[in-house]
Amino acid sequence: MNAFDRAFRAMRSDLEVHLLSIFSVGVAFVCLVTAMLVVVNVQHVQNRWQHIGKLSVYLNANTAPERINDLDAALRATPGVSGVRFVPSEEARRELMSDHGDDTLAALPEQAFPASLEVDTQESLTFEAREQMAKQLQILPGVESVETYANWSSKLATVFSGGVTAAAVLALIVLGAVVSVVSSTIRMALQKRHVEVEVLKLVGATDSYVRGPFIVEGAAQGALGAVVALSLVGALYSFVRGTFEAHLTALLGVNISFLPWTLSAGLLVGGAALGAGAAYLSLRRLLVV
């Protein structure tokens, strides 16, 4: 019997304790997986906004139509611009009202909905080039302001870095929880199997031979805990996506997605390593026969 056989046998004979341990580790991992899922999707939204390739050139209220035509022509001739659309003040009001269905918007003055030139840029155009273009447009006569949506990107970057920090803190909490749960389970298992350990040592088993199945059990608990968490969050994700996908896509401008497989595999391997490490540490102090 190798360490895996012995571990499997021990886990089977003490199934309830091990299942409870796996579930506890899983609950700890759920927080981390959820935070990572949020971070991954915020990053997608941020990337989308950074490459959205849109500029809104807001015009002064008294800009002459000839000036608007000149601006339109100049923009179309600019490298990196893929399309220009003029949105008069009334149309801007109509679009907003149809989106929100709020009658109070109709009462707002005309200045609240300035006419604009909506500029689509090619995706290859860098963020910096767009910013440069905005600066040049800003000084042209007839232009009131230029919206590059950079402030949205920077707000999302702040949310993203906050999410990463939250995920790192949660990772530390998960680390503590996994070490605590796995150590307790291994201590209980060691207590229950003290005769087996004693006999093994008396017949000449080395410490690594005795430790083997316990470390495999710890690794299995960590990995299965991660699987439980990924499954729970995956099920929740499927439900949310199935129910609110259209709203979320409209709101965020991107399709929400689950953790990439590399990150999921990393969680699995990390869980296993964490469980094995916790088991090893708890045995190092207790395995004295």
């Binding site: 004979s13 005769v195 087996e196 004693e198 006999v199 008396l202 017949v203 000449g204 088993a205 080395t206």
Partner: peptide, 24 residues
């Protein structure tokens, strides 16, 4: 400490309380 297991492989030990693994 690392050599102790190899010493024990040359000694058979029988105890009063048998020290058997009951579920084996």
């Amino acid at each position: 400490q690392d050599s102790v297991p190899f010493l024990r492989r040359n000694i058979g030990i029988v105890f009063q309380d048998f020290k058997l693994i009951e579920n084996f």
